[in-house]
Design a protein around this nucleic acid. Sequence first.
DNA 1: TGGTCATTAATGAATGACCATTCATCAACA
DNA 2: TGTTGATGAATGGTCATTCATTAATGACCA
Lengths: 197, 197
Amino acid sequence: MPRQATGRKKEAILDAAVVEIASHGYHGTTVAMIARRAGVADGTIYLYFAGKEEILVSLFDRAMDRFTERGTDELAGLDDPVARLMRIIDLHLELVGGDRDLAIITQVELRHSLHFLDQLSRARVGGYLQAIAGVIAEGQAAGVWRRDLEPMFLAKAVFGVLDEMATDWVLSRRNTRLAARGDAVTRFVMGALRPTA
Amino acid sequence: MPRQATGRKKEAILDAAVVEIASHGYHGTTVAMIARRAGVADGTIYLYFAGKEEILVSLFDRAMDRFTERGTDELAGLDDPVARLMRIIDLHLELVGGDRDLAIITQVELRHSLHFLDQLSRARVGGYLQAIAGVIAEGQAAGVWRRDLEPMFLAKAVFGVLDEMATDWVLSRRNTRLAARGDAVTRFVMGALRPTA
DNA sequence: TGGTCATTAATGAATGACCATTCATCAACA
DNA sequence: TGTTGATGAATGGTCATTCATTAATGACCA
């Protein structure tokens, strides 16, 4: 059989997994289905992944890597905490809303077991929350945002709003763009962060 | 074998299912495990439920029934939209935080497939969101809350905050009470709903 | 240049474990 | 004695994973 550039098949397997898992769910997708769509033999999957579950982990890692990379780029030039947070909100919705199949996986399939969610949450989402909390703390220090609530609490609240919008969008059948909700989310969040009278 | 009052075994099976599914996940729990804990034979499960998945649906229905009943009671005496929304926030956190095993199921296990989440979401959570949106619309009409955002959007945002707090609590290992976050959530939400300057 | 050979990616049929569901049988009741 | 709730061993189907086999490649040598 022909040799392939090493990265090729791994990517092909991940791409196939996104499509299959998005439409049949993680447990409804067999390794054979993924192999078939990727154009490889069942056994080949095991040359690149230790098992079925590692495919799901890799999927999440790949998505988070892209997410983080893009975020770092986009925020590089912004100093103002208000501008930074607004950018985070728009970017979150834009990136999640950019690929419906992937969104189904991040919003639904990845959350299917306590052990799994716990692992992911701690590993990657925790860092994201820290980043948001950092921006909020800056805004508090600058005196533009309320200080009677902890930055980490506020970060979780903001994330909760974004995550709910994303999940709602995934479940809605109507053909809307998730990013279109950026303006409303921003208004809501900025309102919540205003200093109290 | 002795006859039981009809409801008894069904309840016992559901109670057993909560414990098993909370600790092993839905797919990691076998029907035999549930039967064993409930003190019935494997086959008995099928006298009360059409299949394994119906157990999960029934679990959610039972929880939502209790939730709704309690909510209706508690809100009966309150007219002021502000008081009503504050009560909803506290109640949500109190009820979800009252039973960790059940919380694991509502926050994690019930969301394991698009088809499933979609079904539940439309059937029961949709009604809950409508109720919150109704309270918000009242407050807007009374002039105490901002009117530049739709009631349903605001209801989803508030739900997102509550849901994130609940999930975060389920995943956290520290021994905190979920209801303790009611005050901070209320301050956040009330801040977000204030009329814009 | 052309002909071995060793190496390694890739294959896919076979394996074995797991588990939801069924149903022949049992035992308590009226 | 007929009815019915309950039992739990047996069944059948489904897959994740393995591994003996195949084939492409490059190294080496004449």
